[in-house]
Design a binder for these strands. Structure first.
Lengths: 111, 111
DNA sequence: CTCTATACGTAGACTATCTAGGTATGGAGT
DNA sequence: ACTCCATACCTAGATAGTCTACGTATAGAG
């Protein structure tokens, strides 16, 4: 699948997953992978920068957690602003996909 | 609506409109505007470069048409390759939106 | 001892969008 | 006449978000 499609929706997905439960980068990628039906394999090079800029924009908060096996995880949780932005982005997504359906929905034969 | 959402779908929309009938830039933008329910207002700075690169990639052919009132229009038509790519992109879009629905489809309360 | 999974991160390349500007014609309103 | 808007094309440069590829480190399996 063309990775460019994810542009603009990655943040919504992150916000959405975090709205259900706090999570950390690695787990978040797995959650999205499974929930998307193996369709979205979030790359570290997009995921981590996204988390960082979202924190800069105050959509997320983070805290470190040490596991028993001496691994460290950086958990993220939604801020009130993050919750607000999620709502906005979900609405935008609905509008967007309706727009696409409107254009593609015309009857014709592809080939 | 966040313009980043359009990334990766603009070419599909262009191909789709042209699959029904040849068209030119200005008209194409209007067609998409109306078909999308006023949601997608394609900007010249994205539309024309997109048409040019799609022609470079042999997805489109173009020909000039002079109207009675001395205006010139650059019509575009799909090549066989363009038709093929449209099919691919429509499939990708289906997979993509299923992926999104899979992630968003979880039951929870936004706020 | 190596390989995989877990877990974080960044640098640089690439690409596609946008804003803002340019050229030109025709018609409507003042 | 003059201005403004619609029609119709175009490009330069800014911006931004994705990717690949790399680096660090721990734990467990074979």
């Amino acid at each position: 699948m063309d990775p460019k499609l994810l542009t603009g929706t990655l943040e919504m997905l992150i916000l959405d997953v975090l709205a259900r439960a706090d999570s950390y980068g690695y787990e978040l990628a797995q959650t999205v992978l499974i929930a998307s039906g193996e369709r979205f394999d979030l790359k570290e090079g997009s995921l981590y920068p996204a988390l960082h800029r979202m924190q800069r924009r105050k959509l997320l908060r983070s805290y470190w957690v040490n596991t028993q096996d001496r691994r460290r995880r950086k958990y993220y949780s939604l801020t009130p602003k993050g919750r607000q932005v999620l709502k906005t982005k979900r609405n935008e997504w609905t509008q967007f996909s309706r727009g696409i359906q409107g254009v593609l929905g015309q009857t014709y034969v592809v080939a």
